[in-house]
Design a protein around this nucleic acid. Structure first.
Length: 577
RNA sequence: UGGGGCGUCGCCAAGCUGGUAAGGCACGGGAUUUUGAUUCCCGCAUUCGCAGGUUCGAGUCCUGCCGCCCCAGCCA
């Protein structure tokens, strides 16, 4: 087996362990993955998924999948289905599926409580005015003229906001904190805004919707979350997270969560702790929702599940495995340092996983005819090939062999560079599982291109014969021309040809760095056993790389294979210098 | 002199109460190999952003610099 990825006790594992030891949350560990259903999940989300589900599993805890659907209009039901599918595909099962919208009534009651406490007010300022009053990074803001309305007036106004009496944007409910705070999040942040748009879950029951800072911490508490893991940019939202939870005191105010008892969604409320970690970035790709959606909408890629996309749907179609992605994020670690991990690490994880579990096959993607001249025209035999070189449990398969074969064009060179171990005029090479052939003749077409190789097979070197052990420099793969199945082979490479496509400091944007060679479609030949391959089945095409039967286009009569990743290739590296 | 974070090997990342720099990936070398794959050995930071200081001893403590990231949505 491959190297073990050590499990490092990163700071979050340490915090959870310490909390368990001190009995902070009664020894419970409850986490959640809270995506907003406004896009497809990508590799960055996978880091968070692995962390949240992983921490829960390691501690005998539970993990919830919660859709953060507080902004209808930006969100869509299409995304919730894809998110659920991707999380399951990654190998995780949530203990509970919720939506922030399940708690709308709780949020509302909490807001009234804040008003009654004199901690929230209805503001009539427009969005532009609020911005003007907010101050800047270096100057304090000013209080809104509506900041000191009385409790009764605020209550009345807020109820009328809910009742739909005011237009979108006419009023907001704001927390009364400190307009001079250095932390801008504390300058009377909005709690509720008016949006007269239907919600995918609650329809037109509401026309006011809670803001993230308010909805998120309350959702966490209401679900009994113990450790609320999020990314670094929320670090300066933490004081607000704490503020809401302290003021609302959900564990001790049953009236707030009363609606959940009625709907059967009630759980013991907790006092969760927000912990931030650094996002996971990869080089040679973009991960922002905006850019991903632009790639799809502008037709720069073939959809959300284009095998070149960093979306989970994309890498899945490319042939990356859930286990490889999980190993990858474990290997990358969890810390608070902004970092960019080399995609090579991910590719390495994929190779590692697939080496262990992908059956071997032979395929030729750039065919060159090789004729074994000392075999009769009608020669035909069936060879038994092991499906895995190190794991007998994979069994064997039948591979037809005959006089005319396809070999890889790059496995023959008339004028080879030093160190070339493959076929050359007059030279010898081993045909995988067959024996040693010598190239006697090179036939060319009118244009001077090599059209066919005529070789002789040394019968004494065939498996089981006394000369079978004879050493030759190279072994090449092949496929019997008469039996081969034509197949579409899709070769994928990185979508961008620069490490940091987000860097536009030189005036170029990510669009200027698209790799024109990122997708190449070839017609090749595969051995007959591949005709029965199921969609999404992984194989190693010997000496070429790992391939997967395309999830959508592959069919019994029409084989389509995507190259997931090449094999490590020391020769290619040497040859390039 | 706004607030909040972060700076340890090419890329990640441990290092917690100061005791003399884990590990992974990459890379280099060697062995095995009917995949130039896999596997297996061996090597790979006298140094922890910089400069001072405390100490017998500092990546770990103190001081001062420098650099990078995030925040001025009625987005999340």
């Amino acid at each position: 087996m491959a190297n073990e990825t050590p499990v490092v006790q990163h700071f979050i594992r340490q915090i959870v362990a310490a909390d368990n030891a001190s009995g902070k949350h009664g020894g419970r560990v409850v986490t959640r993955f809270p995506p907003e259903p406004n896009g497809y999940l990508h590799l960055g989300h996978a880091k968070s998924i692995c962390l949240n589900f992983g921490i829960a599993a390691e501690n005998g805890g539970t993990c919830h999948l919660r859709f953060d659907d507080t902004n209808p209009g930006k969100e869509d039901i299409e995304y919730v289905e894809s998110i659920k599918e991707d999380v399951r595909w990654l190998g995780f099962q949530w203990d509970l599926l919720r939506h922030a919208s399940d708690y709308f009534e709780v949020f509302y009651r909490g807001a009234e409580k804040l008003i009654r406490l004199g901690l929230a007010y209805v503001d009539d300022l427009s969005a532009d005015e609020v911005r003007a009053y907010r101050g800047t990074l270096t100057e304090p803001g000013r209080n809104s003229p509506w900041r000191d309305r009385g409790v009764e007036e605020n209550l009345d106004l807020f109820r009328r906001m809910r009742a739909g009496e005011f237009a979108d944007g006419a009023k907001t409910l704001r927390a009364k904190i400190d307009m001079a705070a250095g932390n801008i999040n504390l300058r009377d942040p909005a709690i509720y805004r008016i949006r007269k748009v239907p919600h995918q879950n609650t329809g037109d029951a509401w026309c006011i919707y809670p803001m993230y800072d308010y909805a998120h911490c309350v959702s966490d508490a209401v679900e009994g979350i113990t450790h609320s893991l999020c990314t670094l940019e929320f670090e300066d939202h933490r004081p607000l997270y704490e503020w809401f939870l302290e003021k609302l005191d959900l564990p001790n105010d049953p009236a707030l969560t009363e609606p959940l008892r009625a709907s059967g969604l009630w759980l013991e409320p907790s006092r969760p702790q927000q912990i931030e970690f650094a996002r996971g970035n990869l080089n040679y790709t973009v991960m922002s929702k905006r850019k991903l959606i632009a790639l799809v909408q502008d037709g720069l890629v073939d959809g959300w599940d284009d095998p070149r996309m960093p979306t989970l749907a994309g890498v899945r179609r490319r042939g990356f495995t859930p286990a490889a992605i999980r190993t990858f994020w474990e290997r990358a670690g969890i810390s608070k340092q902004n970092s960019v991990i080399d995609v090579g690490v991910l590719e390495g994880c994929v190779r590692e996983d697939l080496d262990a579990r992908a059956p071997r096959r032979m395929a030729v993607i750039d065919p060159l005819k090789l004729v074994i001249a000392n075999l009769p025209e009608d020669h035909e035999e069936t060879l038994a090939f092991p499906n895995h070189p190190k794991d007998e449990s994979f069994g064997t398969r039948a591979v037809p062999f005959s006089r005319e074969l396809w070999i890889e064009r790059e496995d023959f060179m008339e004028a080879p560079p030093k160190g070339f171990h493959r076929l050359v005029p007059g030279g010898e090479v081993r045909l995988r599982g067959v024996g040693i052939v010598r190239c006697e003749e090179v036939a060319k077409d009118a244009a001077g291109t090599v059209a066919e190789l005529r070789c002789t097979l040394d019968a004494d070197t065939r498996p089981g014969m006394p000369g079978a052990e004879r050493k030759v420099k190279g072994t090449i793969h092949w496929v019997s021309a008469r039996h081969a199945l034509p197949a579409e082979i899709r070769l994928y490479d990185r979508l961008f040809n620069v490490a940091d496509p987000d860097d536009d400091s030189d005036g170029k944007t990510y669009r200027d760095h698209l790799n024109p060679e990122s997708k190449r479609i070839l017609r090749g030949y595969v051995e007959p056993s591949l005709g029965e391959a199921a969609p999404e089945a992984h194989f190693q095409f010997e000496r070429l790389g790992y391939f997967v039967a395309d999830r959508r286009d592959h069919a019994p009569g029409r084989p389509v294979f995507n190259r997931t990743v090449t094999l490590r290739d020391t020769w290619a590296k040497l040859a390039k210098g």
